[in-house]
Design a protein around this nucleic acid. Structure first.
Lengths: 169, 169
DNA sequence: TTAATGTTTCAATAATTTTTGAAACTTTAA
DNA sequence: TTAAAGTTTCAAAAATTATTGAAACATTAA
């Protein structure tokens, strides 16, 4: 009876985990997130451990990361002592937070380095001149892309729809 | 005299490598790409090995991957028997190829799974109904994002500038 | 042909990253 | 207070991923 659902649930969790690791996010972190996303109510650490068959330590550390990213929240239930965890329910908001976080953690530091290294004095070396030109070009590109991402995601509601609409105009 | 350039070059290669691994691309692959990008002319396998201090096997395999991605090309020099390698010189084109390749390798397969799993029959189970709703919502979102990426990058020339212009309108 | 030059493959090894599990720590109820 | 319930930390182990290096393979010049 529930066979089909369990199978689908499992497939979804595995796929989300694999997608995560292809994008530099650890598999367990992505799996916990997947599990919480499809769960109608908040889950305890025990429930997460049991469902994914992972250790308490692993669960604890990855939940902390998810909370740091701002895409999972702690919840408390009346009369219950333990903590429960729930995922950000709004997908637009989820995407916005991920975009913001990756920009902060990866793009911004890269931009800083690009700016630094493109500042060399080229004197009369062809190689250095080429290096300077390329890294400047890269800075410019990455910087624009980062601005674009910011622009796209700063509109709070339904930014994908709005953006596609603009792109078609 | 060239000290400053060498330092900058090294820093750039290391940073590009680190960025690569954060995005699921192997470090060496990203480093080779960085080296070729800033090199005014095509390099031989020997030169790449020496510069990055990596083995022949590693160099060979990662060059093949870069060629598979379509962002590095083989070149032949008159009178020289060996092969030389050069990176895609146009950054817009580079970004387009990366976007296209990641869509094909990661987003499209994920969409297929999302479509599959959201097809379950929910009967009277609340959990299954919630699962179906969430995965459908996710399918919708990812699918729109993928379309958006396609739309943005299908314009060949200077798509970033054009897109930002549209977004500001 | 064959020797020289160059490239690819892949099993073994190394490096890195993830995961475990148990001890330390924290909080709360009694 | 203390014991019970719960959470976090982190060194060690396991799993995964990247890298080496040498043998096999390919191509070309003589």
């Amino acid at each position: 009876m529930y066979m089909q659902f369990d199978e689908a649930k499992n497939k979804f969790i595995q796929t989300w985990g694999a997608l995560g690791s292809q994008w530099g996010i650890n598999k367990t972190m992505a799996q916990i997130h997947a599990l919480l996303m499809i769960s109608p109510d908040a889950l305890s650490m025990e429930e997460i451990m049991d469902e994914l068959r992972i250790s308490r330590g692993n669960t604890s550390m990855n939940l902390r990361s998810l909370i740091d990213w701002g895409i999972v929240f702690k919840e408390y239930k009346a009369g219950e002592r333990k903590e429960f965890f729930a995922a950000e329910g709004n997908i637009d908001e989820l995407a916005r937070k991920i975009a913001k976080e990756r920009s902060k953690r990866e793009i911004k530091p890269t931009l800083r380095v690009l700016k630094d290294v493109s500042g060399i004095d080229t004197k009369d070396s062809t190689k250095a001149a080429h290096f300077k030109a390329k890294t400047e070009e890269l800075y410019d590109f990455v910087s624009r892309a980062d601005n674009m991402l910011e622009k796209i995601t700063e509109q709070k509601e339904n930014w994908i729809t709005k953006t596609i609409f603009k792109l078609m105009s």
